[in-house]
Simulated assay, not measured.
Amino acid sequence: MSKVFTLAEVSQHNTNKDCWLIIGGKVYDVTKFLDDHPGGDEVLVTATGKDATDDFEDVGHSATARAMLEEYYVGDINSSSTPAKTASAPPKQTQKNEDAGPGFIIKLLQFLVPLIILGVAVGVRFYTKSAA
């Protein structure tokens, strides 16, 4: 039977001399692996004190890395001691009505004013040529 740890117990192991991680509901003592971790030891140490499953999965570890975890397994996490995960939803964005308001008028003027200037310049040049 494996040992069951609370988040508080696992959180005490949060240095590069004593580093435990929670991944997939299991607790791993990765202290001996810190020097060999391709991403450096700091990445692992900063993942302590919380459920690091998402961090581990987001990196896209290989099957070899996943198999290596078993070497560092020390027990399971008491799931009632960890905060429940909440689904994150993207913030609601308000729809902007681009056809109204001062922003639209400014964009319209930025388009029309150069055209008017160009038209006046061509007209003046044409008028001065035909008057001569």
Rank of each mutant, 00 (worst) to 15 (best):
E70N: 12
V27D: 04
A63W: 03
S2T: 14
D29Q: 01
W20I: 00
G60N: 07
P114A: 07
A87M: 12
F56L: 09
K3Y: 09
G119H: 11
V74C: 05
L109I: 13
E98W: 06
R125P: 01
G24I: 07
N78A: 15
V45Y: 01
I106P: 04
D35V: 14
F33L: 10
A65S: 00
S81G: 06
G101C: 04
I23Q: 03
P90G: 14
A63E: 10
T15Q: 09
S81L: 09
F5V: 11
L109T: 09
G25W: 09
S130P: 01
T6W: 00
H13L: 01
L34I: 02
V74A: 03
I117M: 08
T15E: 00
T46P: 08
L108Q: 13
Y72D: 11
Q93V: 15
I117C: 11
V43Y: 11
G24Q: 10
T46A: 14
T53G: 00
K17E: 12
E42K: 04
Q12F: 03
L7N: 06
W20G: 06
K129S: 13
V43I: 15
T48A: 12
L115Q: 10
I117A: 13
F33M: 06
D29W: 00
I22C: 00
S88N: 14
I23Y: 06
R66K: 10
G39S: 03
D18N: 13
I116F: 09
A63G: 08
D76C: 09
D58P: 02
V122D: 00
K50A: 07
F56C: 03
S62I: 05
G103V: 03
P83L: 07
D51T: 06
T82H: 05
D76I: 08
V10E: 05
D36V: 03
V43D: 13
A132S: 06
D35Y: 07
Y28A: 00
A100H: 05
G75T: 02
E9F: 01
G49M: 02
D58V: 09
I117D: 11
Y28D: 02
P90Y: 13
T48E: 06
V30S: 07
A100M: 07
S79L: 14
L34P: 02
G60S: 02
I77C: 04
T94I: 10
Y127N: 12
A63I: 10
A89G: 10
F33P: 11
V4W: 10
A100R: 01
I106T: 14
G25Y: 02
G123E: 07
T48Y: 04
Q110K: 15
M1H: 12
L21G: 07
K32Q: 08
F33I: 08
S81T: 14
P102K: 15
L34F: 01
D51M: 05
Y73M: 14
G103N: 04
S2D: 13
A47R: 08
V74L: 05
F104R: 13
W20H: 00
T86E: 14
H37Q: 13
A67R: 05
L44K: 11
T64C: 02
K85V: 08
V74H: 09
Y28I: 01
K26Q: 13
N16D: 15
T64F: 14
V122L: 12
V10C: 04
E9R: 10
V4E: 14
T15V: 12
N16M: 03
R125Y: 08
F5M: 06
G101E: 04
P102T: 14
P114G: 10
K32F: 00
T6C: 03
S81V: 07
E9I: 09
G103E: 01
I116Y: 08
V122Q: 01
D18M: 06
